[in-house]
Structure formats: structure tokens, C-alpha cells
Amino acid sequence: MTQPQHENMLEVKDIKVYFYDDEGRELKAVDGVSFSVRRGETIALVGESGCGKSVTSMALLQLVDSRGKIVGGKVIFEGQDLLLLPEAKMRTVRGKDIAVIFQEPASALNPVYTIGEQIIEAIILHQKLSFRQAREVAREMLRLVGIPEPEKRLNEYPHELSGGMKQRAMIAMALSCRPKLLIADEPTTSLDVTIQAQILELIRELQKKLGMSVILITHDLGIVADMSQRVVVMYAGKVVEEADRTEIFKNPLHPYTIGLLRSIPRLDREQTKLETIPGVVPDPSSFPVGCRFRGRCLYESPTCCEVPPPTLVGNNHLVNCHHWQEVRQGKETARF
């Protein structure tokens, strides 16, 4: 094993992805997101539907829909800016150095090829192996992700596998080239809780075994508490808070993080009334100016019409809010 030259394996700096709709409006779906991932670390990207988690993670690989464009930022992966790489170079990074597990295993696997063919194709694409060797690796990977009778499964089509098995096959495919970074985009949302527990356990084990970094995308703060070391909370295309796991859960400083944490129904205790965040998540065509959480925030003041500056508070804890000090003291402006 070579020793790490950089402490941060990945540094995302101020990345911006804009979409353009039919009316030609600019939708700032991802607007200046920064975070970094250390070697061997799991960071969680959390936020509600539409906040830009998937778009951000795909932009790292220069994969953006034709209606969208990466309009700025840097993605430094092992000292090299991925956004400057030409497409041909980028293709060798995708799948080899950085692998992705998608939310919907059913749609990410091609129904007309067997599981084996798809994994072997991925292996041969990035490694100088013969078909026979690649098949051997594929079988080994299926065994590693806990699929029984891997030899038989190699010859089966996606529809012959259950949802959990397909997700495992996806993981096997993603890991077959031993990537340095794994992007897991909601890897368990379509699965049942008991199957989810299996898959999460599996990802954790494999990460230990292969020593890779993981970006875990999820909207479930339960999974975050369970899996990650650092947490990046996104809202409306921006990072609102970033901190170590315990810090986020014990000492959240952004009003949105607090609202999010409070509004989750708890399994471990009964609540007479659930707390809520008033209002709804805004649409990218109507993000408020200044702080995008305006209108739903309990701490809002006229200052909030300015974009809140990123503030480093204490140990590795970054918050984007004008009033984090009031938040810390629990002084709501109580508008609602």
C-alpha cells in the first residue's frame, strides 16, 4: 500500500451546477457547495428531496444532464482537478477510482445482460485482465457481498434477483475495481429496513476491508448517525452546516438542521406532538434571495436577506447562518 500524499482525498470547492428550464430560466440547483473527504472516511450528504445531493455527487464525475451545466468550482481528487480533465481521461476515473452505487438498482442494471456480463464488462474496462480472470474476480466480488451461489448468479438476469440482491450486485460491480472513493447515492431507500440493515452492515465491512472513502447520500438522519464520521447538511442547493457526527447531533447550530432533527418521528421515544418546520421546501425557480431558508426559519431577521457567510465555529464545525449565536442560546425570534 502506498502512503497517502494528501490528507484529503477529495476536496470539493464551491461547485455550482445550474439547470436551464423551458422558459430559459436559470435554476441554481447546486450553488457553491464545498466539502472534503479524508482517506478512509465516510461523510454523509444529507438533506430533503431536491436539495441537490445527487446533482452534486454526479457533478464530481462531470456527469450532468444536458439541461444543466457545471458553471464553476473545483473538484480536487488526489491533487488533480477533475473538472479540468478531458472526457477521455475522466472515463478512466469513473468506475476505477471513483465508483457509484445508484438509488434504484432496478434501473441501473441493464435488463438484457446477465449480472455476470455486466460486472465482467466493468472489470475488463478498467483492468488488464483476461475474460477468465475477470470472471474469477466477479465471482469473488459476489461472494464478498454475500450473494449465495455466486457461480450460478453470474448467469442470471437482473429480474431474477430480489431488490436486496440487485443492490448487492450493484455494490459488487461498483467495488470490483477497488475504487478509492465510493459514492453511495441513497443505496437503501428502495429497500426494507431489515434488508437495509444488511446492506449498511455490508458497506461498513467492505469499507474496512478495502480502506476506501465513502460519500453516503441519504435523507435519513438515522442512517447518518449510524454510518458516517462527518456530516454535510444541504438545503436548497447550498451547504448549511458541516460538522463531525456527534457535533451535528448534539450541538446543531443551523436552524434548518435543528428543525430537521426535531421533526423526525423518533423510534426511541414517544412524542405527543411532532415538531415541524413550517412551510415547504422551495422550488429552484423560486429560491429566496439571501439565506435560502428564509420564510421557514424561526430565527430570521432582516439581516438574512444577505447571503450568510460560512463561519467556522469551534472544532471543524462550519455553519452558514447569520444568527448561529442566537441559535446556540436558543433565542428564537418566534414569528410562528
Binding site: S162, M165, Q196
Partner: peptide
């Protein structure tokens, strides 16, 4: 028991002895 223990709880202090089931439904 397995069902309840499999639910991830948003609290890093909540440690549950997770029952991991094997196999599919």
C-alpha cells in the same frame, strides 16, 4: 425484534444490539 432493531435512530448515543437477518424475504 429484528424489525425494531433494524431501524436506524438519529442519535449517535443510541446503541442497539442490531439483529441482522440473513437472506431475503
Amino acid at each position: 425484534v429484528a424489525l425494531i432493531s433494524a431501524v436506524p435512530v438519529p442519535d449517535p448515543d443510541y446503541v442497539v444490539d442490531r439483529v441482522i437477518l440473513h437472506g431475503d424475504v
